[in-house]
Amino acid sequence: MSSTAESRPPRRSAAMGFLLGQLRNIAPVIVLIAMVAFFSSTSSTFLTVANFMNILSQISLTAIIAVGLTFVILTAEIDLSVAAVANAVGIMVAYFTLQPEYVNIANMPVHGVLAIVLTLAACFAIGLTTAFGVTVIGIPSFIMTLAMMQIANGVSAMLVRGQIAYNFPDAITFLGSGSIFGVRATIVVALVFLVTAHLVLTYTRFGRYVYMVGGNREAAEYSGVNVRFVIGAVLVIGAMCSGVAGMLGVAYFGSAQQTQFDTYLLDAIAAVVVGGTSLFGGRGGIGNTVIGLLVLGVLNNGLDHIQIDSFLKILIRGLILLAALIVNVYAQALRAPRTADEG
């Protein structure tokens, strides 16, 4: 009897327990504040309104992709095809638009609205394919989306054949490169996506299912929740968000070509995970993703403001991601002893 009592971990104080439980939410905020303080003190050009808007603009496309990825990771799945899908969808919308004479692409110009509709439908089909592979066939999402990444890259390659396209539907050009009341339009779109996703996750039945499926998939199933539908739906949402980011992205860059979104895969995953959404599902949300996006945005932007070897930047980003992963997993482990006692 006494031996079982002794083998228990020492009781933590209530306040300490709360802080440890909130580690995943608190740590990214502290990191963000520390980085802002650091870059502000080392660079005179960092802490300005213009630069702040610049950071927002830089993270806006990542934000749209990260919104979809937040849904996926909350259910404890992963989508590695987001950047490739964004790229393919961006190229598709160009494929449906009349290109200048000198662009040597055998494309299929249609009316702008139809181009957007067709592209979104194709994007939806890509999401459905992923969802089918994961939920019906039972391929782990990690591998399924790896295959979809390659397929999307293949679609991109087939459509542009090494060329670059420059023209897009007017609406896309406006949303990707225009501005609304002096604010870059992509920022506004990203905000709309973030706010909508937050509302869906917090206030709708579907949002609750996403959290519950991520929290305990078996219990969700034994409660009569259609787990396969929920997982399929988040994968489709992931593909659609990537697709929108891809369409706006080509207009943002001013051109559509292969491999131009490659860095977005790591950035989007990093944003979600750095923000503190659990890789094991069920915890976190859009609030966390926003903090994660800001951490990455401030880091990328700040490193440009202090003179630093541009090659070292890549390494630093890798280290930051690793640190975030450690906190993410450790935060889960800290919770475990408090909930592991058999009831």
Binding site: R208, G215, N216, A219, A220, S223, T339, G343
Partner: peptide
């Protein structure tokens, strides 16, 4: 096995309502 049925970290009301949200 209750573990297969309950969301241990979620409050009682969410555990009850999961089957009737619709």
């Amino acid at each position: 096995n209750r573990r297969m049925m309950l969301f241990r970290e979620a409050p009682v009301y969410k555990n009850v309502s999961i089957a009737i949200l619709d």
